[in-house]
Amino acid sequence: MGQVLIRNLDDGLLEDFRRAAKDGGRSLEAELRDALQRSRPVPKRMSKEELVALSRRMRALTPPGAGEVDSTEIIREARDRGYGASE
């Protein structure tokens, strides 16, 4: 786990976090860790090349013929047996 030192924090901001930590029954460190986790930046979007590579890896995991299954008959059988019917 990494560590970070943040200098020159506004006294009022720090006091707000101290108060929130005390009200929540936890340490200032835990309060700040949670605040950082909640405001975590959104991961960067994949490039076209990354998406194509991911698609190829996923396709390689799909068994041959799996994309050729017609679910129409399965759905009809389930309907005829009463699956999914509200009672």
Rank of each mutant, 00 (worst) to 15 (best):
M1Q: 10
G2N: 13
G2W: 05
L5H: 12
I6S: 05
I6V: 15
R7M: 03
L9D: 00
L9E: 00
L9S: 00
D10H: 00
D11W: 07
G12L: 06
G12K: 04
G12V: 03
L13E: 02
L13P: 01
L14F: 01
L14N: 01
E15F: 05
D16T: 07
F17T: 00
R18A: 02
R19W: 08
R19H: 10
R19G: 01
A20L: 14
A21C: 12
A21S: 04
A21P: 10
A21L: 03
A21I: 11
D23N: 14
G24A: 14
G24L: 04
R26H: 12
R26K: 11
S27Q: 13
S27I: 10
L28W: 02
L28P: 02
L28N: 02
L28Q: 02
L28K: 01
E29H: 08
E29D: 05
E29I: 10
A30S: 09
A30R: 15
A30W: 13
E31M: 14
E31Y: 04
L32G: 02
L32M: 09
R33N: 06
R33G: 01
D34C: 06
D34K: 11
D34R: 14
A35E: 15
A35W: 14
Q37F: 08
Q37W: 11
Q37L: 11
Q37R: 09
R38F: 14
S39R: 15
S39L: 15
S39E: 13
S39V: 10
R40Q: 12
R40V: 08
P41V: 04
V42Y: 01
P43Y: 07
P43K: 06
R45K: 15
R45A: 12
R45I: 09
M46N: 13
M46T: 10
S47T: 15
K48Q: 08
K48G: 03
E49P: 06
E49T: 08
E50V: 05
E50A: 11
E50K: 06
E50Y: 04
L51T: 11
V52Q: 14
A53D: 14
L54P: 05
L54M: 15
L54C: 11
L54G: 10
L54Q: 14
R56E: 02
R57M: 08
R57Q: 12
M58C: 07
M58G: 04
R59K: 13
R59M: 08
A60F: 02
L61H: 08
T62K: 15
P63G: 06
P64A: 04
P64C: 02
G65L: 01
G65Q: 00
G67R: 00
G67Y: 00
G67I: 00
E68K: 14
E68Q: 15
S71G: 05
S71T: 08
T72F: 05
E73Y: 11
E73R: 14
E73W: 05
I74K: 13
I75Y: 06
I75V: 12
I75T: 12
I75L: 13
E77W: 00
A78N: 11
A78G: 03
A78C: 09
D80K: 14
R81I: 03
R81F: 03
Y83A: 04
Y83L: 09
G84S: 06
A85V: 04
A85Q: 02
S86M: 10
S86D: 04
E87N: 05
